[in-house]
Design a protein around this nucleic acid. Structure first.
Length: 746
DNA sequence: AACGGTACTTAGAATTCATTAG
DNA sequence: CTAATGAATTCTAAGTACCGTT
């Protein structure tokens, strides 16, 4: 270690002494203990392993970052050639566009003369809109019902249905009003000071999963072909495995061996001596039983399902809510996680390990001293009951696989979560006011004499331009090998002096959070490119790209530039500003609602691509795509037929002035037109679906896009809010829906 | 600076529910 | 009506960030 710090000093000194020309003096500084271990472990699995690690392949081609063109070039605004002429970038064609747009959001794009109203008025109006929409829908339904039953002679049934619908509608509206009245408008209240999260908190404690039900006698486990009656604990764990047999997990060697190791720990001595090889285990009957149970549950009668539903509702009513400062709030996860086999993502070294059953003795309860303390289940005790009002959790326990803490917390629609969310977007908006200065600064820092500062500048450039995550360090061997910006290693990027006609291209290929692959080819400024070359000198696979940087250093620097600023704020900021910009660009007041929604989704998609929010293509994707295609094909045939008929009709009508024939021609013409329209609609739907094949819009909608942008857009575009936000989202963003005026600008 | 721990947000997969097509 | 499909909800893993201690 002493050596390293010496060489570090030497290097920094040299950088200082010979500004600009001694870049080759870089010495790799092994980063901390963890990184060191990594360096040693690395060489064993090189290149070949790389592909092996990839769990998912994203679009092979570089994701098209056209949408962010402005942002990337924004970064170069102040590209002043200084000392080092080599740093001058040639051919940066893109000029900054967005600066001028900063002040006007989507509101100014539309001339919608929405009269300015008092907050609550507007909110009511929004409500009214969706209410009328609902009414209309119900009316349509009613008509449909009447039509369907029109042929029947029984009028009582018709009436009854009518009444029922009427009643249901009334109930719905009433419920909604009730809900609105009950809603806690916390955003109109004062916030608590110095970390106090609540003054009063009362709840029932978490809900424990049902006990294990032993296998019936006729369902047997076989070892080496012979039936073996397992002890209860071993049986329970065997069933966990049996239930997953259809899953790919159970074919993976790591999963199997982890499972087997932990399973054996649950066995009796005798069992352990007998059962030595997982491959000789036959879980077939257990698996079949499980499948049968699932099937049976699916085939329950309506009544039985209703009974189940009501029982569940009772549990929710009892355990799913708490009282926080005089208000009833929904709890997000009030159920203790049931035991099972750990399902890590990607190549997780711990996949298949046994996640143990949590007992009340493992659970810490947090609530008010003066509240009714929750009762532990009969015959049990809590691990601890504490009264800490500087935290938001109601209960917590330690999880045995990763050794981390799990918490019971409130639902997203609660004050505690909402307030924090609001704050998050306010910080991001604040970044907007100083982002230009920060960008100028890191451009400048690219030329710093300090290696650490240069690395910080390049990392920040990536985080800002590409919306990369910060990239905290992780303990080696405890989790899958994934990285973020600060933890990028040299093998994760490839530098191309020129690629596809562009200069200074960086090719990224790494696994990010949840083992989602990030693959992108990005042209960068010459300065950044030169720095990257410098950082990579004398390094080999497994070495950190930014060996003098970590997230703590980065965030420390950021918070000195703006209070509350951290790496992840850039993701929020860039996501939201991109949405706002794209909405302005894409949506058009003259469009109909469907077209407007398409524009919204496209804007949303631009953000999802920026943030690399991917999903596995749905299992049924190919099928449903094929279905749609066959529909399109049959429609095409229909169109051809209609065209032929039209031709024929025209032929017949030619020369004559027979009115009948002319009418037929007109009819055929219309048929052709209708066919064409429908065909077009389906084709649009197909491309839309294809575009969304592996892009998940929900994550950005839920976590990155300031809801006020969407609410304002809906108001300006006269699109009902429930077209873009479902009930959950409307609940979560109630604060934004209530307070946002049409002229809101992020 | 390193470590170990805590608290909270973000994430895609899995499951359940509701709607539509057949 | 039933099955298929798609949307909503649930689940819990996997991140970020930061703090106190040594």
């Amino acid at each position: 270690m002493a050596e390293d710090s010496n060489s570090e000093k030497a290097m920094e000194k040299e950088l200082k002494d010979n500004a600009g020309s001694s870049e080759d003096a870089l010495v790799v500084k092994p980063k901390k203990k963890k990184a060191k271990a990594k360096g040693k472990a690395k060489p064993q699995h090189e290149g070949k392993e790389k592909t092996h690690r990839k769990m998912k392949t994203s679009k092979e081609e570089s994701m098209d970052f056209e949408d962010n063109g402005d942002r990337s070039s924004q970064v170069n605004v102040k590209e002043e050639p200084e000392e080092d002429p080599d740093f001058v970038t040639k051919g940066k064609g893109k000029k900054r566009k967005r600066k001028a747009d900063n002040t006007d959001g989507p509101s100014s794009a539309s001339e919608a003369p929405l009269p300015k109203k008092k907050k609550k008025k507007v909110a009511e109006e929004g409500q009214g809109n969706s209410a009328t929409a609902k009414k209309k829908k119900i009316k349509e339904k009613k008509e449909k019902v009447i039509k369907e039953e029109g042929g029947r002679s029984v009028s009582t049934k018709k009436k009854k249905t009518k009444e029922e619908i009427e009643a249901a509608r009334a109930l719905k509206i009433k419920k909604k009003e009730e809900e609105e009245k009950q809603r806690w408008r916390w955003w109109e209240e004062e916030k608590y000071e110095n970390g106090v999260k609540w003054k009063f908190l009362e709840h029932k404690g978490p809900y424990f999963p049902p006990e294990f039900q032993p296998l019936p006698d006729d369902v047997k486990f076989y070892y080496n072909g012979k039936p073996v009656k397992l002890s209860l604990p071993a049986e329970e764990v065997a069933l966990f495995f049996a239930q997953m047999l259809d899953h790919e997990y159970t074919t993976k060697e790591v999963f199997r061996s982890n499972f087997f190791k932990d399973w054996r720990k649950e066995m009796t001595l005798e069992e352990r001596q007998l059962i030595m090889d997982l491959n000789k285990c036959d879980f077939g009957e257990l698996h079949a039983m499980h499948k049968q149970k699932v099937e049976a549950r699916k085939n329950l009668s309506k009544e039985e399902k209703l009974v189940n539903k009501e029982a569940n509702q009772k549990i929710v009513d009892e355990y799913g809510f708490c009282v926080l400062d005089h208000h009833r709030e929904r709890i997000g996860n009030f159920k203790i996680e049931p035991p099972g086999l750990f399902r890590g993502r990607g190549d997780h070294p711990k996949q298949g390990m046994l996640k143990k059953r949590i007992q009340p003795e493992d659970v810490i309860i947090n609530c008010s001293k003066d509240s009714r303390i929750p009762e532990p289940p009969a015959g049990h005790q809590w691990k601890e009951v504490r009264h800490d009002n500087t935290v938001t959790w109601l209960a917590s326990w330690n999880e045995n696989v990763q050794g981390s803490c799990k918490y019971v917390m409130l639902n997203a629609n609660s004050k505690l979560k909402g307030e924090k969310d609001w704050e998050k977007y306010e910080v991001a908006r604040k970044l907007k006011t100083c982002v230009d200065a920060i960008r100028a600064q890191y451009q400048d820092d690219l030329k710093s004499k300090q290696m650490g500062t240069r690395q910080r500048a390049v990392a920040l450039y990536f985080i800002d331009k590409l919306a990369l995550r910060a990239g905290n360090e992780k303990e080696e061997g405890e989790t899958a090998d994934t990285v973020g910006c600060c933890s990028l290693r040299v093998e994760h990027i490839t530098l191309h002096d020129t690629l596809d006609g562009e200069k200074c291209v960086v090719e990224f290929d790494f696994l990010g959070k949840d083992c989602i692959r990030y693959y992108n080819k990005v042209p960068v400024t010459k300065k950044v490119f030169k720095n990257l070359k410098l950082f990579m000198e004398n390094k080999q696979e497994g070495d950190d790209l930014f060996d003098r940087l970590n997230t703590q250093l980065l965030n420390k620097h950021l918070s000195s530039l703006m209070p509350g600023l951290t790496a992840k704020v850039f993701r929020t900021y860039n996501a939201s500003i991109t949405l706002q910009q794209q909405l302005k660009e894409l949506s058009n007041m003259k469009d109909n609602v469907a077209e407007k929604l398409l524009s919204y989704n496209r804007a949303n998609r631009a953000v999802a691509i920026l943030c690399n929010h991917q999903r596995a293509p749905p299992k049924t994707f190919e099928q449903s795509m094929a279905n749609l295609q066959s529909k399109i094909d049959s429609r095409k045939e229909q169109l051809d037929l209609a065209k032929k008929e039209l031709k024929q009709a025209k032929k017949e009508a030619k020369g004559t002035s027979d009115n009948k024939l002319l009418i037929v021609v007109e009819k055929k013409k219309k048929a052709v037109q209708r066919c064409e329209e429908q065909l077009l609609k389906m084709e649009v739907q197909a491309t839309d679906r294809e575009e969304n094949k592996q892009i998940a819009l929900s994550t950005s909608k839920l976590n990155y896009l300031d809801p006020r942008i969407s609410v304002a857009w809906c108001k300006n575009m006269e699109v009902p809010l429930d077209k873009i936000y479902n009930k959950t989202l409307r609940d979560k963003f109630a604060w934004a829906i209530d307070m946002t005026e049409h002229d809101f600008v992020f």
